[in-house]
Design a binder for these strands. Structure first.
Length: 454
DNA sequence: GACAGGCTCAAAATACTGGG
DNA sequence: CCCAGTATTTTGAGCCTGTC
C-alpha cells in the first residue's frame, strides 16, 4: 500500500488529550481490525503504511495498515498480535493514540477487568524485539505506559522560561545544545548565566534528591521484574532517577554512581537507552571516581530526541541493561515522541524556518563545474541519493541541476556550470540555498565578499 | 568540455580525560 | 558539577584522472 502522506503533520497530539478509540472484539477482527473512520481525523498527516502498538507486554509491535476505500485496517501482524495477547471474542481493546502512528493498547476482558499479561520476551514476527537487546525481557507494562505521564507530571515544572528559536539550518552540525554551549561560553566562562542558575535551582525542586527518587526493588542488584500484575510495580516504582540536561550534556551525561553500582550498570560498560517510541541507542559508560558518565552514543541520543538545555530526563531501569528515557522539556511537557526539531518547533509554537545553507563560491566551483554541499545539511533534509533538483533564482527562473553524493560528499554537478555562467558567479560571491520544497532550492546570490577577505 | 569518481590533507567536530 | 585540555574521528576543500 502506498503510504498516504500529509505534508503538515508529524506533530504529536496534545499530551493532555490524546485521542482514543476502542473495539469490542468479534471473530473477524482477529484477522484485521478496522480503525473508526471518525478517528482517522486524528491521524491526519501521519504515514498510514504502518502502525506501532505498545502492547501490554511492554513490547512494540509494528502492524501493517491496509486501506480499503475510506476504511483503514490494522492488518499484517494484527493476527499475531491478537494471538500473542490471547485476545478473545468479547474482549474490549482500547487504543490510545500517541502520535506518529504509535498506539498504546489496553485489553479488558468480558469481566470488565484489565487483562493481566506475562512479561515474556515475545518472538512473534511483528514484535519489536528486533534490536540488539532481543533477548532481554522488557518490563514496561501497559499500566506503566499509561501512568508515566502522570508520574512525571507530578514533578513540578522545571522552568517556564521560553526556549530560544531553533536553528534549523546549521553549519557543520552544530547541535542546539552545542550552540547553547557556545553562547554560554561567550557570555561568561565559569560561572553560569543567571538563567542557568535558575534552571539549576528549579532542578533541585523538581527532581527529588536521587536517594528519594530512586526506588529499587528489594536488595537485588538488577530488578528482575518478570510479570505484569495488577499489583505490579508501575513505572514510578521502577528504579529510576532524573537528570536535567545542561549545556555540557551534548557531550556526556553523568549518572549517579550509587544507582549504577546498585543495578550493576558499571560492570556492563555498554547499555541501551530506549526512548518512548521504542528506538534503542547503545551507549558506553565510563566509570569515574564520583560518577558514571555516558559517553559514546549519548550524542546521537541527544540529537535524535531533541534534548536541550533545561529538559529533564527520567531514566527508568526496565531491563538489566536497558534504561527507558522519558523526556520532559523545559516547559514541563513530556515529549514522548519527539521526532524532529521541526516537530518540536511545531509543538511549542515556534516559527519554522526553511532549511538553508550558504557557501562562498570557490575557484574550483567555476573551474571544475561543481558545487559542494554540507553533508550535515543533506542528511538533515533527506538529500541522500542522486537526483535532479531545481535551483530557482531571484527572477523565478528554474534550473535543473544534478545532485549527487559520492564518497559521503554531496555536490551539485551537471547543470551547475550553466547556472554559474548565467548568473555570472565569481569567486567570493556568497550563495544562499533555501530548501523551499522537496528538491527545490531558492538561490540568493549575494555580492562578492569583501575582496575575499584574506 | 562536461561529467563521474577517487585521493589526500587540513580543519572542525566530537569523544574522552583530568582536575578544580 | 563543570570547565579545560587532548586525542580521535569526521568532513569538506582542492585537485587529479578517466570516460563520454
Amino acid at each position: 500500500m502506498a503510504p498516504l502522506k500529509n505534508p503538515n503533520a508529524n506533530a504529536s497530539p496534545s499530551l493532555t488529550k490524546r485521542p482514543q478509540f476502542f473495539r469490542v472484539l468479534i471473530p473477524n477482527p482477529f484477522v484485521k481490525l478496522p480503525i473508526p473512520q471518525n478517528f482517522m481525523k486524528h491521524l491526519d498527516g501521519d504515514q498510514y503504511s504502518k502502525a506501532t502498538l505498545l502492547s501490554p507486554h511492554g513490547k512494540f509491535w509494528h502492524i501493517d495498515l491496509h486501506q480499503e476505500g475510506n476504511d483503514l485496517y490494522l492488518d499484517g501482524g494484527w493476527s499475531d498480535f491478537a494471538k500473542e495477547h490471547d485476545l478473545c471474542t468479547g474482549d474490549f481493546v482500547v487504543f490510545r493514540y500517541e502520535g506518529n502512528m504509535v498506539f498504546t493498547v489496553k485489553v479488558f476482558d468480558v469481566t470488565c477487568c484489565l487483562k493481566e499479561y506475562e512479561l515474556a520476551s515475545c518472538k512473534s514476527p511483528g514484535c519489536s524485539s528486533t534490536s540488539n537487546e532481543s533477548s532481554e525481557v522488557e518490563s514496561l507494562t501497559l499500566s506503566q505506559s499509561s501512568e508515566h505521564k502522570d508520574e512525571v507530571q507530578c514533578n513540578s515544572t522545571p522552568s517556564s522560561k521560553k526556549r530560544k528559536s531553533i536553528e534549523i539550518s546549521r553549519k557543520r552540525t552544530t547541535s542546539p545544545v552545542t550552540a547553547s554551549i557556545k553562547k554560554t561560553q561567550k557570555t561568561s566562562s565559569r560561572s553560569a548565566t543567571p538563567t542557568i542558575k535558575k534552571t539549576k535551582r528549579i532542578t533541585h525542586v523538581s527532581s527529588t534528591p536521587i536517594k528519594r527518587i530512586e526506588k529499587t526493588t528489594p536488595s537485588s542488584p538488577t530488578p528482575p521484574i518478570k510479570k505484569a500484575h495488577k499489583n505490579s510495580p508501575s513505572l514510578t516504582s521502577l528504579p529510576h532517577f532524573e537528570k536535567i540536561v545542561r549545556p555540557y550534556s551534548s557531550k556526556y551525561m553523568s549518572f549517579p554512581k550509587k544507582f549504577c553500582i546498585r543495578h550493576g550498570l558499571i560492570s556492563r560498560k555498554g547499555i541501551t537507552l530506549k526512548n518512548l517510541k521504542g528506538k534503542s541507542y547503545d551507549v558506553l559508560l565510563y566509570d569515574r571516581a564520583t560518577e558514571v558518565r555516558v559517553g559514546k552514543g549519548w550524542r546521537d541520543f541527544t540529537l535524535e530526541n531533541g534534548l536541550r538545555d533545561g529538559d529533564a530526563c527520567i531514566f527508568k531501569l526496565v531491563a538489566k541493561s536497558t534504561l527507558l528515557v522519558c523526556l520532559k522539556d523545559v516547559l514541563g511537557e513530556i515529549e514522548a515522541h519527539k521526532d524532529s526539531r521541526e516537530e518540536i518547533a511545531c509543538n511549542s509554537g515556534r516559527v519554522i524556518e526553511y532549511p538553508q545553507f550558504e557557501n562562498i563560491v570557490r575557484p574550483f566551483n567555476l573551474k571544475l563545474g561543481y558545487f559542494t554541499i554540507p553533508r550535515s545539511f543533506c542528511l538533515e533534509n533527506g538529500l541522500v541519493k542522486k537526483q535532479h533538483i531545481i535551483l530557482e533564482d531571484s527572477d523565478g527562473k528554474k534550473w535543473q541541476i544534478q545532485f549527487l553524493i559520492r564518497n559521503e560528499r554531496a555536490k551539485f554537478q551537471k547543470g551547475w556550470s550553466k547556472f554559474s555562467k548565467a548568473h555570472d558567479l565569481k569567486v567570493g560571491k556568497k550563495c544562499i540555498f533555501t530548501l523551499v520544497k522537496e528538491n527545490t532550492f531558492r538561490v540568493i546570490i549575494e555580492k562578492k565578499q569583501a575582496e575575499n577577505d584574506a
